[in-house]
Simulated assay, not measured.
Amino acid sequence: MNSFFATHDKRIRLHTPKNFTMILAICILLLGVCILASLALGSRLVSLQELVDGLFHPDVDSYGANVVRKRISRTIFGLFCGAALGVSGALMQSVTRNPIADPSILGVNTGAALFVVCGIAFLHINAANQYIWLALAGAVITASLVFGIGSMGQGGATPLKLILAGAATSAALSSLVVMIILPRSYAMDQFRFWQVGSVGSGTWSAISIFIPFLIVGILIAMITAPALNALVLGDDVATGLGVRTEILRLVAALASVILCGATTALAGPIAFVGLLSTHIMRLLLGPDLRFVIPMSAMAGAIILTISDVCGRLIGSPGELEVGVVTAFIGAPLLILLAIKSKVSSL
């Protein structure tokens, strides 16, 4: 068990990054600012007194205080979704050894969306606890399909082959989604709001459904982090260090799919958060996943929360869905990374 989940070989010398404490403090500060902004800003701006009343004075029944109370569940839900996507992106990049791997790029989001569409169109489901199991099944099957296609041929699952397999699979599944939705207006009405990606549906019920998946996914990620550090050196070296690479990839990929699938089921397919948060943390902290994974969770929570706030401010008096905002930010970044890295391995 120890050789699978961790490696203590002297050839791998990983230390706490020198700037870790400072970056952690900055992230905690940014997280606090994002939480306050999410509670205070939107189509209805609230005053400092209304914010205090909404948080600490349940007996106060003013309109502003009630607005703040309604935003609490949305804010917590956004933080959880961002954290899940951040960890999912870190795991996906490590498992595939691909610096631009992300659940959305590898088609996992689209697979989850297809199964949710089938549930809406054929099973007439409309509850979050039903969405989540369908989304997880779709995410697992799609991830397996992409890895299977990417592993074919000479050289196995190279970064470029996985990206191409993910793009092709995503395109094919997107076509199936359209084919199922178009003849069914009732399903289209329900699906079109979900598919954009939004944390507006973040109720306490959705949070309670989401928490077990979040805890399981992050625990698996942290337990496998030391062994994933060895995997960066290559399969042969990792095997020599006592890491069972195939089982490690399966477990880590499963954790990534659980986090991504649960988020997609409840918030819709939100792209690029995992890619952006993980790259920021790798740039600041280096490659050690013992630090990159938890800090990617914080970065993902910050990115998604501030994107939600920006969407509310830009679209006021309505709102611009957070999936649109993250795509607007993430798409240029993906192009830049692809140009700079030439889709090289980690």
Rank of each mutant, 00 (worst) to 15 (best):
13 R>V: 14
69 R>C: 07
241 L>T: 13
71 R>K: 15
112 A>D: 08
17 P>Y: 08
293 I>S: 11
93 Q>D: 01
66 N>S: 13
197 G>N: 12
322 V>H: 08
90 A>C: 03
202 G>Y: 02
149 I>S: 04
179 M>H: 10
329 I>F: 13
232 V>N: 10
234 G>Q: 06
35 I>R: 09
161 K>L: 02
258 I>N: 02
87 V>I: 15
319 E>Q: 09
317 P>T: 10
233 L>N: 08
44 R>Y: 15
237 V>M: 15
246 E>V: 09
268 G>E: 04
113 A>D: 00
86 G>M: 07
91 L>R: 01
15 H>G: 04
336 L>S: 07
222 M>A: 09
222 M>Y: 08
168 A>F: 02
111 G>H: 10
180 I>N: 14
242 G>Y: 07
122 F>G: 01
272 F>N: 08
73 S>C: 10
193 F>R: 13
41 L>P: 05
77 F>E: 05
280 I>H: 00
327 A>C: 12
99 P>L: 03
285 L>I: 05
313 L>A: 02
106 L>G: 10
271 A>R: 00
58 P>D: 15
217 G>Q: 02
139 A>C: 06
244 R>T: 15
3 S>H: 15
80 F>N: 09
186 Y>T: 06
95 V>S: 14
314 I>Q: 05
74 R>W: 12
339 I>Y: 09
155 G>V: 13
258 I>Y: 06
185 S>K: 14
139 A>P: 05
208 S>Q: 12
122 F>H: 05
3 S>E: 10
233 L>F: 09
238 A>R: 00
40 A>V: 10
225 A>Q: 00
217 G>T: 02
277 S>E: 04
234 G>A: 11
116 V>D: 01
340 K>L: 04
270 I>C: 01
291 F>Y: 15
37 A>W: 08
79 L>N: 14
162 L>P: 12
98 N>I: 00
321 E>V: 07
273 V>Q: 11
191 F>Y: 15
201 S>D: 13
269 P>I: 11
49 Q>N: 09
242 G>A: 11
72 I>R: 10
160 L>D: 08
342 K>F: 00
103 P>G: 13
96 T>A: 15
236 D>R: 12
98 N>T: 06
81 C>P: 07
69 R>H: 10
77 F>V: 03
196 V>Y: 04
61 D>N: 07
50 E>L: 05
305 T>E: 03
6 A>M: 13
53 D>R: 02
211 I>W: 11
138 G>D: 13
300 G>V: 06
28 I>Y: 09
189 D>F: 09
188 M>T: 04
115 F>S: 10
236 D>W: 02
251 V>T: 12
35 I>C: 13
90 A>K: 08
30 L>N: 01
